Computed example of a mutant assay.
Amino acid sequence: MTSPFAAAAAAGRIISHRPTTIGILSRRSPCRLLLRPQTRSITDMERQTRQMNRSMARMDKLEAPQPSMRTGQTNAMLEEVAELLLPSTFVTPPFFRRPSIFTETRDRIKFEWVRLKIKAQDLVSRYLARLWHSDPFIRKDLIPSAEALHRNMYTAYARGDIDSLSRICGRDLYHTFRNRIVSRPSNVQFSWKFSGYNSRSRVMSHKVGMLGQGKGDENSIRQAVVRIDSTQTLIKGVDGKVVKGTGEPTRTVEYIVLSKRRRGGVPESPWVVWGTVTESGMDEIRAHGIPPQQGDSTVSGSGGRWNR
């Protein structure tokens, strides 16, 4: 059995930092439905990476725990890793938001090279999951699961259904939704309606983080990013009266992150919503050579239509 410290070291190699806030990503929408994404600065990410490396170095020097302690500690670390975004999560923007091949040729070449490199790494991670864990290489349940969870999550959040959210959302996202529901005034009501999809949902990223040391060690995290372009309507009521400015159908593009985990000897967990991520851009590629490991897993609550 792999020691918890070996698992922690492996986790340190695939995890970059804890994300901060979730939001519905609607850059092209006339109004934000829920949230505004917040991005860590490069300095903050470098500082957190150094802290993670120092923590891993200290753990490597500790004496190994007794066998009776290993299972519980390994499971606790796996729970913690499940709430982090896997590194090099690349969300390709549309062609018109990529660097121009005519005026920014060098940047465009670099952008496409990084995109292809990370796509190849994702394919390798999925191939290893198939080789070691007998997982399907292509998950046919990805898009149907993302669309169903997307609709159920916002419907439950609007009506304040905390029990349903506990089954739909990851730990951090659930606690944030729960706190906002508990603090919602009793005279405020929300109604969320789904009108339809404006285009087919697409899988933008699909990768597996292997926490074990080889075949037979089945601790892993699977994450996927699905682009959902839909028309939604949010109605807010106060004392039974509709608030002006709500109730208008809004086209919203979101990059929903799904996550599931596998423990040794335990069947793979169902998909849950981890949060959202933004499209990858050139600033991060220039700074790191790869896109940042940024994302949103909690509600920011600033400037969103839910707070009107």
Rank of each mutant, 00 (worst) to 15 (best):
L85H: 10
K110F: 04
V203H: 01
I221T: 11
H206S: 14
S302H: 06
F5Y: 13
E83Y: 00
T2E: 12
R222P: 00
E248M: 10
W271R: 06
P270A: 09
E104W: 01
A6V: 14
Y157S: 12
F102M: 11
G303M: 03
T105D: 04
P144G: 07
E104V: 02
C169T: 06
I256M: 12
R171Y: 13
V273R: 08
H150M: 07
Q73G: 08
Q66T: 15
V257R: 03
T250Q: 13
R184Y: 02
F177D: 02
M77N: 10
A82C: 04
K244I: 11
L211P: 01
I118G: 02
Y255Q: 10
V91C: 11
E63T: 15
A7I: 14
Q213H: 05
R106P: 02
R151L: 07
A6L: 13
V257N: 07
D163E: 15
R47C: 00
F96E: 14
F137G: 00
S191Y: 06
S269C: 04
S201Y: 04
L211G: 06
T92W: 01
I42S: 04
P67I: 11
R36H: 12
G303S: 13
S280A: 07
D161C: 04
V208W: 09
G237H: 11
Q223V: 03
D283H: 10
S100V: 01
N179C: 00
R115Q: 14
R130E: 10
R98T: 08
E279C: 00
M56V: 15
R286G: 03
P67C: 11
D296H: 12
E279M: 05
H206A: 09
C169W: 01
Q51Y: 04
K241D: 00
L84W: 13
M52Y: 08
A146Y: 13
D60F: 14
S259D: 05
T71N: 14
R106N: 10
L234I: 06
Y255E: 01
S55D: 06
T276Q: 08
D172A: 09
S145K: 03
L86R: 04
M153H: 00
S145M: 06
F5Q: 12
G247S: 11
A156M: 02
R13L: 08
E112C: 03
S88Y: 02
D122G: 06
Y174V: 00
P185S: 06
T43E: 14
S125W: 06
G216E: 07
Y197C: 11
S29F: 01
G170L: 02
K244Y: 04
G303L: 10
T250A: 08
R32L: 07
N187C: 04
T105Y: 09
G12E: 09
T231E: 15
W306D: 03
R227F: 02
P93S: 05
Q223L: 08
R286N: 11
N75Q: 13
A129Y: 06
R262F: 03
D141F: 11
A224P: 05
G212L: 04
M45F: 02
R97L: 09
K215C: 05
R180K: 07
V266L: 08
K207I: 02
R308D: 11
D239Y: 03
Y174K: 08
Y127A: 10
R263A: 13
L78N: 13
T231D: 10
